[in-house]
Simulated assay, not measured.
Amino acid sequence: MSSTSTNLPDLPLPAGIRSRVIEGVNGLSVHVLEAGYGSNERPCVLLLHGFPELAYSWRKVMPVLAEAGYHVIAPDQRGYGRTTGWDASYDGSLTPFRLTNLVRDALGVVAAFGYRSVAAVVGHDFGSPVAAWCGLIRPDVFRSVVLMSAPFPGPPQMAFNFADAPLPPKRVDPVHHELASLPRPRKHYHWYYATREANDDMWRAPQGVHDFLRAYYHHKSADWKDNKPHPLKSWSATELAKLPTYYVMDLAKTMPETVAPEMPSKEAIAANTWLPDHELAVYSSEYQRNGFQGGLQWYRCGTSGAFTAELETWSGKSIDVPSCFISGKQDWGTHQRPGVFETVQTTACTRMTGVHLIDGAGHWVQQEQPGEVSRLLLQFLKTAAV
């Protein structure tokens, strides 16, 4: 189900942003958006989107960074949009979608443009762990890291000091059984996204892909007034059940069924300035064409545990380049994994220069509040370069 980018309509991009395809990047033809182009004498900033988004998610930030003197590159990541060369069949190999290969993709993009290092790698949502691993594995290339909406817990810990003691048994997480056993049975969206049915549920959504995405984006934004995040006490069913249903779903519901009741009114849609319908149409047309499985493969890599041993290669290592964290004040993503927001500020990153929760933004922070995100990014880039 790889995408095809031939004969597609031009994207409606702001002035100063161009769209192009770079061939031969780690087996991919990578579609990128680019601003501040024309000379690789400019310091480079790499922007990595999340799910279910695209390079297009950065359209409001890119011109500001370019105006400030940066060469800004935002790829459609593996499995997304107009990047081709990936196979997202459910029964295909997950290996190309594992985190270390996504870092290789990012490295390949900046190398293709002739950069041996970049000023910053910025990742939002599922782009955040990719950015984190970029800074962890190749700090010589990715000279600073901005994590957005998804704090980084650090690498998984390797079993330690067991030569003269029994190896601790592999722990089976009981939380999924406990969630399903609640009086109101629930399930975690990561594990739903790993099911065979999830792609078709969303691709063939009863309300159509466009209206599904509208409801999904609305539900996770500051426009949905019940988004009032707070820290959770533990990774337990009773605590996780406090999360909104887009994170901890009703057991029997699909994601389109979950968000459908939160569909904003026609008046609210018409009044939406951060994602008007003609901009949402960019996302809906790309996902109608490709489906969602390319992005869902990333979740499957995480929930399967198949690549944990590889990531344990960096057990005990921290991100030691300058870093910062940016999220919406109304974004539950900051707290969806209890304790990680604290960990990213203490042990996962050793040179975190700022933590910013932007009021008036939910999960789609660089789209909901692009001016403040741009200001914070430029402020960080200035301090990181010192």
Rank of each mutant, 00 (worst) to 15 (best):
D125F: 11
S89H: 04
L296M: 05
K317Q: 12
A348F: 10
R18Y: 10
P338E: 12
F380D: 11
A165V: 12
A306C: 10
G16N: 09
D320S: 15
A111V: 09
V109W: 00
N227R: 10
E53S: 07
G339Y: 11
N227H: 11
T346N: 14
N101E: 15
A74Y: 07
P370Q: 08
P256H: 02
S5V: 08
F51C: 07
P370G: 04
D140P: 09
D223Q: 13
L376H: 00
L280A: 06
L8R: 13
Y37V: 09
P168H: 00
A74F: 07
A237I: 05
R171I: 05
E41H: 03
S234I: 08
G295K: 00
R104N: 14
G333H: 02
R59F: 01
T254G: 01
L311C: 11
L136E: 00
V72A: 02
F126T: 04
P166C: 09
G50N: 00
I17W: 05
Y115G: 13
P155A: 09
Y217N: 13
V209I: 10
Q297T: 12
A106V: 00
H218F: 14
T245G: 01
P166F: 12
T100I: 12
W274I: 01
Q367P: 01
K317G: 04
P151E: 00
A260T: 13
G305A: 12
G360L: 03
D140K: 06
R337L: 06
V45L: 09
R143H: 07
M263Q: 11
A66L: 00
L99S: 11
P12Y: 11
V45K: 04
P183E: 12
G294I: 09
A361N: 02
G295C: 05
V248P: 03
A66T: 03
L376I: 11
S149H: 02
S144P: 08
V64H: 09
I22Y: 04
V21G: 08
A88C: 10
R18H: 12
R196W: 07
I73M: 09
Q297K: 15
W274F: 04
A215D: 06
H188V: 04
D140Y: 09
P231N: 02
P169N: 09
Q297R: 15
W224E: 15
C301G: 07
A119Q: 12
K220Q: 14
N272G: 13
W314I: 05
G27R: 07
A68P: 05
D125L: 11
F142L: 08
V365S: 06
S149F: 03
